[in-house]
Design a protein around this nucleic acid. Structure first.
Length: 184
DNA sequence: AACGAAGTCAACCGCTAATTT
DNA sequence: GAAATTAGCGGTTGACTTCGT
């Protein structure tokens, strides 16, 4: 995993690549004591020879409390598919609806698992006569929605700034809408 | 057992938006 | 209001792992 460090020789050389347990510990301890803001100074004050960006990413994707790792459930997968249909590649928004999941994890999961699934499904659909999938679109078929194709402003419809929007209320709202579209 | 191909995922990069000075 | 700094996002890379031959 370690990447080559090819910074200019007279520049301060920052660590790159995989994080060590020691670096993780330093970062976690510092953030616990001082909070997660001003990543550049976090990096310096925590005694990490890393750029702020790298620290932020490590914290958000790995060290943050309540992170769920691996084993994406069927429910979560279904939700990702539906949200992607609605939002397109807006991974952070999708991740925001899946407590404990990170945008990076969802993006990776999409690219390595779901995109293939979808391709397989759409290949299957191509062999089916047109009118069958005109009337009842398969939720897995995102050919028409690689990027979101809804004809309204999503943020007008859903309040993404609201606290506690991890709840299922807005999801249900969307899923109801999705269902009624299928029926019509 | 050895090797190459394909899959996975942590981390980096480049860019834009938001915030601060 | 302008410039500088910081935060956050999505795309991409590349080391490691797994699988097939």
């Amino acid at each position: 995993m370690a990447r080559k460090n090819n910074d200019a020789p007279n520049k301060r050389v920052m660590n790159k690549g995989a994080w060590t347990a020691e670096e993780d510990r330093k970062l976690a301890q510092y953030i616990e004591a001082h909070g997660a803001k001003r990543w550049k100074s976090v990096a310096i004050k925590a005694g990490l020879n890393r750029c702020g960006k790298s620290c932020r990413l490590r914290w958000l994707n790995y060290l943050r409390p309540n992170i769920k790792r691996g084993n994406i459930s069927n429910d979560e997968e279904d939700l990702i598919l539906r949200l992607h249909k609605l939002l397109g590649n807006r991974w952070s928004l999708i991740a925001g609806r899946l407590p404990g999941r990170t945008d990076n994890e969802i993006k990776n999961y999409w690219n390595s698992h779901l995109s293939k699934k979808i391709r397989a499904t759409s290949t299957k659909l191509e062999s089916i006569p047109q009118e069958t999938h005109d009337t009842k679109p398969d939720p897995m078929d995102t050919r028409q929605s690689e990027s979101s194709e809804v004809d309204f402003d999503i943020s007008d419809f859903f309040d993404f700034t609201a606290e506690g929007c991890y709840g299922l209320e807005w999801v249900n709202k969307f899923l109801e809408l999705d269902q009624s579209n299928v029926i019509n």
